[in-house]
């Protein structure tokens, strides 16, 4: 697994940048979101809301760009390889991950000793990364349903009525933030549990051999 080399082909510069944008926006969104949820110091509400809206638009554009780019940018599909293919291949079912989902779960539950064979993204990893795409859009939807200028649009009103009113929508929006926080915690943990080579490549674009 992490005994592999980490080459730039795994994460081309454009995706290093989108990842940075995601991280910064997520931190801004979570921080300003917590503040809007309960202002824990004075004098920041106007800024917090502005920050929340700007970071939201940036992350939505960034995400949409990232999804489209997957069809055009070439990346490595295997660990420790410089061989590239269209990035979307990483997000579709891959031969190397076949039959490996439960083996991966077993591995992380210490029910087996050896690491599992996998593509660049293991099956568990791939599913959770993919889930963030609809989750982010859904998060934006719940946010727009609360946001004054858009709350009364039929498209958002429909959802507000579905969940039983704006208070429930607010609570859902709040809980979904925790989903993102949990994802980030687990993501950062699993990515760096063996060593920090994965962080060096995704943040600093620095290759490591072995």
């Amino acid at each position: 697994m992490s005994s592999q080399a980490h080459y730039r082909e795994a994460h081309p510069l454009v995706f290093v940048i989108t990842h940075w944008i995601n991280l910064i926006c997520m931190i801004m969104l979570a921080f300003s979101g917590f503040y809007i949820h309960y202002p824990f110091f004075d004098g920041f509400m106007g800024v917090a809301r502005g920050m929340h809206f700007v970071a939201m638009f940036v992350i939505l554009i960034n995400l949409t760009f990232r999804v489209i780019a997957a069809f055009f940018v070439k990346t490595a599909t295997d660990l420790g390889s410089r061989e590239v293919d269209t990035d979307i291949k990483n997000w579709l079912p891959q031969e190397k991950n076949k039959h490996q989902f439960f083996e991966t779960v077993k591995y992380y539950l210490f029910l087996r000793k050896e690491g599992v064979i996998s593509a660049k993204y293991g099956s568990l990893q791939k599913i959770s990364y993919l889930a963030t795409v609809p989750l982010t859009y859904l998060m934006a939807y719940t946010g727009f349903a609360l946001y004054g200028p858009t709350a009364d649009w039929g498209f958002f009103m429909w959802g507000t009525e579905l969940v039983g009113g704006p208070m429930n929508m607010r609570i859902i929006h709040y809980f979904m933030m925790w989903v993102f926080i949990l994802f980030t915690m687990v993501h950062a943990y699993l990515a760096n549990i063996y060593n920090f080579a994965p962080s060096k490549i995704i943040f600093l674009w620095k290759e490591t051999e072995h």
């Binding site: 697994m1 992490s2 005994s3 076949k98 039959h99 490996q100 083996e103 591995y107 210490f110 087996r112 000793k113 050896e114 690491g115 599992v116 064979i117 549990i193 063996y194 060593n195 072995h210």
Partner: peptide, 16 residues
């Protein structure tokens, strides 16, 4: 479990 550092040895063949 001794996995920290280089990670665990990877299986030669899938369990399946």
């Amino acid at each position: 479990a001794g996995r920290i550092g280089d990670g665990p040895p990877i299986e030669e063949m899938k369990a399946y």
